[in-house]
Design a protein around this nucleic acid. Sequence first.
DNA 1: ATAATTGCAAACGATTTGCACTGCG
DNA 2: CGCAGTGCAAATCGTTTGCAATTAT
Lengths: 150, 150
Amino acid sequence: MHHTTEHDILKESIHKLRETGVRITPQRQAVLNYMIKSDDHPTADDIYKALVDEFPNISVATIYNNLRLFKDTGLVNELPYGDASSRFDFITSAHYHVICTECGKITDFNYPALNEVETLAKHVTNFDITHHRMEVYGLCPECAENTSKS
Amino acid sequence: MHHTTEHDILKESIHKLRETGVRITPQRQAVLNYMIKSDDHPTADDIYKALVDEFPNISVATIYNNLRLFKDTGLVNELPYGDASSRFDFITSAHYHVICTECGKITDFNYPALNEVETLAKHVTNFDITHHRMEVYGLCPECAENTSKS
DNA sequence: ATAATTGCAAACGATTTGCACTGCG
DNA sequence: CGCAGTGCAAATCGTTTGCAATTAT
């Protein structure tokens, strides 16, 4: 029995990156490591703020560059939200998200993948379907509480 | 037997707006009318371009103001897409969307509402669920054709 | 009459880009 | 060493805002 640790995931991810001919810089590794350890779904700015102590000169451009790279490599998912900042999610297993419309909090939500939706969409529209996105919106318990009080 | 025409929908929508104490300006009515007649899912800029002939001085701010108003009144849905422009959809009946990742084309897609997802999400997360969003992505037939050729 | 709406331009915020410099391999 | 990656500032783009002028009611 082998237990996969965060450290293993980091090593494996770095390996995957090297395979595509990408250099492992300290900044890149720090962003990657932050994504792996992060439980929530950070924005680019969240990551910037978290790393600026260790890398006083790091720039947001570097954060964005690396997030795009990780996305292209399939390590990270981007969750875009209209006018607001995108949130980023290190890909462990497939899951959906429940999002608070008041405070923006994102909670993971396990639900069987809606494969039949993709199949039907393919038949009906003749699109070459690649993926889908599903999100549930509402008020998180805290915001619901605050709203009912006021 | 009564057949609902676009003109009826317009009249009904205007009535709904008046009820909330909103003034019916020519620009407002033009945006509304465009939304009702539009088969695709226009961006604010699409609407601007479509109306600038009739209203040479109309500004994007007015388009956005009215779209926000229609959204608040429940006449129109906004479909935000990350860094790109939001698209707007006059609400007739509930449906999902299939979106081309290459050209951005949006096709309506009828599928029974995923109510059980909302119910489960409510139980699992204790959120006060209000709605959900589901979209299927892929290549539209035209883009798939072009991709395979190159 | 008067408060809501318009149009304009400036502001904003997230993200991208150009480019000289740095440092990983 | 050479070229990919960084950091900086400026640019971009969708959207919002402040405000004076207009207009629906």
